[in-house]
Design a protein around this nucleic acid. Structure first.
Lengths: 106, 106
DNA sequence: TATACGCGCAATTAATCGGTTGCGCAAGTT
DNA sequence: AACTTGCGCAACCGATTAATTGCGCGTATA
């Protein structure tokens, strides 16, 4: 089962979970209380998040705390990087590039 | 059919398409040439991208040029914003929080 | 030691996904 | 006018998906 970060954040519940545990590690039950789904459903989401290393777990007695692997979020940011150039740097510059591309045909 | 930006970029082909047309608007056929999938498959992806407004189309004769709606990419960036704080500003503080949690064990 | 809890691990089902195929319409070409 | 080309639309199919249910294994508590 090939999972990547982008697929992981595609699900709204998963994004909500990420937002929840971003500041503080939580157990599946604690997380599940914030949604109106079952614990198992949440656990499955967590499993997927762990699978793609967006979240890591830490056992503590019979409880398992899930916490965000913040570094992995950079991967998304890294992908966005190339587009940030386009939307921040210069819209007019982009136009120049496009014009050049068009006039560059022999 | 509820689509959002995150679901749109979940698919690797869709991300590749986005990367392709980022700099230059392209027609479905032109895009399809870059992959080993059919034009229809690409068209379906484009349809999804248009649906969530990540891409817009512009008719030109019988050809339709698809072009990236760069502004919409910001939506992803906006979501990342909250985590950027964590991973950039406060690694040390995060560690403190985690340590505190750990010392809670008897 | 017996009992209650927290949790992961299947197995199952309904829904959705990505892709293919075939069609028809409209815009260019001859 | 007849033909070709670019494209969207719809139907279909196998593969995933999200969520439910039932189970068993450890860890606490009495």
């Amino acid at each position: 089962m090939r999972r990547d970060v982008f697929q992981a954040i595609a699900d709204p519940t998963r994004r909500a979970i990420i937002g929840l545990i971003a500041l503080q590690a939580m157990t599946p039950n604690a997380i599940a209380e914030h949604f109106d789904t079952s614990r198992q459903a949440v656990s499955k989401h967590l499993q997927i998040l762990v699978e793609c290393q967006l979240v890591k777990q830490e056992q503590q007695g019979r409880e398992i705390y899930y916490q965000l692997e913040v570094a992995k979020m950079k991967e998304i940011d890294k992908w966005l990087e190339q587009f940030r150039k386009i939307w921040e740097d210069r819209f007019s510059e982009l136009d120049t590039v496009l014009s050049n591309l068009k006039t560059n045909k022999p």
